[in-house]
Design a protein around this nucleic acid. Structure first.
Lengths: 148, 148
DNA sequence: TGTCAATCGTTGATATGTCAATCATTCTGT
DNA sequence: ACAGAATGATTGACATATCAACGATTGACA
């Protein structure tokens, strides 16, 4: 069980979240909020739809996290220029500094996580993670076609 | 950003959950419930405390998931023999078959995830995941000591 | 023995993620 | 131009994870 990749990924992901939690709470952010302001800092203002698509989460979750972020003064919602359905989410100055602090925290976490990894191993690790994700994403249920 | 390990792990973990979701819902289980019955099937009856410790989640979460699992007929809670605080959680027959189906689903997912991986690559991948987790778990914030 | 600390399970509050449904707006096809 | 489909954002409902607090029980120690 401990050897199944399901558990291995669970453990690694869990440890990563636990490692980043002190930084996150120090910034006054909820569990899912850092990734939103990080994306906004890198890509500039965008719609809620774009945030939901990028992170593959429900637009409802984005909506509520932005409610909280807006109340905290990290982002503002503006009206879109062309389409009155689509608004634009933008970082405030406070949001920008929080995103910078978060990026530092992520680099710190990464350094800690990769201790003892050679540069080649780290690159291989990243490659494995990308391939695993791609394999899981593509076909819906490619199993039991041939034999089984 | 797409290259940071934070995002890479997020993507892989996310894809894995999405891949396993149809099987999970087919069994009538909530998102966190499969791991509990899987553990119970492998390790036999145990306390709620043990489940919480093993998966590193709050005992409150375990308590509520077991409420749901018990209502669904997957597990039963019995009184402990020695300590009247500590109960014992046990799989029912329905819980046992669900756990077997879940283990099949996990093997299937793993096959799909590792498509194109050689046996050596898969072993290396598992090793990287274990090392990353251990690195994140041990020291709290050992960074920026030497030179950054 | 008697008091205090620690432990197990539980409940409440809050945040996230999924699903379903709704409202307003925009697009499509005729 | 108009009816219906599609889209963006929102809200409600449910399950989960974290934090805080509580009741019951057990253990430790004077």
């Amino acid at each position: 069980m401990e050897n199944g990749f399901h558990m291995l990924l669970y453990r690694a992901f869990h440890a990563q979240r636990a490692c980043l939690r002190p930084w996150r709470t120090g910034l006054g952010l909820g569990p899912g909020q850092p990734k939103l302001i990080d994306y906004l800092a890198r890509s500039g203002p965008c719609s809620q739809r774009q945030l939901a698509s990028y992170f593959e989460i429900d637009p409802a979750a984005v909506c509520r996290m932005l409610d909280s972020l807006e109340k905290g003064g990290f982002v503002v919602r503006r009206a879109g220029p062309n389409d009155r359905r689509t608004g634009v989410v933008e970082l405030t100055d406070k949001g920008r500094s929080a995103s910078q602090a978060w990026q530092s925290a992520c680099r710190e976490m990464e350094r800690q996580m990769l201790r003892g990894f050679s540069a080649q191993e780290a690159a291989q690790f990243a490659d494995y993670l990308r391939r695993a994700r791609e394999n899981l994403r593509g076909p819906k249920a490619p199993a039991r076609e041939g034999m089984l």
